[in-house]
């Protein structure tokens, strides 16, 4: 028993310890430089999307890896792979498959037992997977019904390439980076310092904030309110899933399904 047979020392580091500040600065400068270069017509306009996407998702994933005690080079590699995938995804219809590369990188690291601190070590219990799928389907279904009944959002079935692109983006960038950072890193650290409720509140608030500043979110009030409601619910439930199953996979699955359903809604 630790409290009896180990000397008590100040073991808790700061909440933001090990943050790769230099890499984050480089990503931010890169995004700003891309915007500037597009403005002066040195780079084509799609470069902004690639740079911002790389900076956003790359920063989240690199920070999560750094907090899991991976060397800075691993975080830089992850951000680079996301950037490369974002660029390749725009080349042709099968380009989005490049988003599987970040997932592959994380999977390789997890298989080597190097991401245990993010909840990516060892087998996942079946009940966790089932719970994740159920919660994703429940929230997605609820979103579908509520959105279509209240704010008049129409269901738009995407074409196969569109569906593939959206799914690949969520798998390799959007959901992967968000779950790794907000659940595997931020909530994981916070719950060791404060109560479960406080940790859930912090991680969920940060999660909602991340999507509120996302330029892809439609800026209609009712849609923003709905996004806050569902994202808060999804964030809080995924925190509980992570805590309960001791794995990031169930939350990843629930978020993936939720976003897959979200993609079939047409705000227009």
């Amino acid at each position: 028993m630790w409290v009896l047979d180990h000397p008590s020392t100040a073991r808790t580091a700061g909440l933001l310890a090990d943050t790769p500040a230099a890499l984050l600065a480089v990503l931010a400068i890169g995004a700003a430089a891309s915007v500037a270069l597009v403005e002066v017509a040195v780079l084509p306009p799609p470069a902004i999307g690639i740079a911002v996407l790389t900076a956003g998702h790359g920063a989240l994933l690199a920070t999560a890896l750094a907090w899991a005690h991976r060397p800075p080079a691993t975080g830089a590699l992850a951000a680079g792979v996301i950037g490369l995938a974002a660029a390749v995804s725009r080349l042709n219809a099968f380009g989005p498959l490049a988003y599987l590369a970040p997932l592959l990188l994380v999977s390789v690291l997890a298989r080597g037992g190097r991401l245990g601190a993010l909840g990516l070590a060892g087998p996942v219990a079946l009940k966790g997977v089932v719970a994740g799928l159920f919660i994703g389907m429940f929230l997605g279904g609820h979103l579908l019904v509520t959105a279509s009944r209240t704010v008049g959002v129409q269901v738009h079935l995407p074409t196969a390439p569109e569906a593939l692109a959206a799914l690949a983006y969520d798998v390799g960038a959007n959901v992967l980076a968000a779950e790794c950072f907000f659940r595997g890193a931020l909530f994981n650290r916070a719950q060791r310092r404060w109560s479960f409720a406080a940790a859930v509140t912090l991680a969920t608030a940060a999660y909602v904030l991340r999507y509120l500043v996302d330029p892809l979110l439609p800026m209609r009030v009712e849609l923003v309110v709905g996004a806050v409601f569902y994202l808060a619910l999804l964030g809080a439930i995924n925190c509980w899933l992570f805590w309960w199953s001791e794995s990031l996979v169930p939350g990843f699955l629930s978020a993936l399904i939720f976003f897959a359903v979200y993609r079939v809604l047409d705000p227009a």
Binding site: W2, V3, L4, D5, H6, P7, S8, R11, T12, G116, G119, N188, Q191, R192, R193, W194, F242, W243, E246, S247
Partner: peptide
């Protein structure tokens, strides 16, 4: 045993309870 300097030893000496947020060892 109760190691000198541990939380248990401190509680025994001071007579006041102590709470530790995380003693490590797992995701939870």
């Amino acid at each position: 045993r109760v190691v000198p300097g541990s939380v248990g030893a401190r509680v025994l000496a001071r007579g006041a309870p102590a709470f530790v947020g995380d003693v490590g060892g797992g995701v939870r």
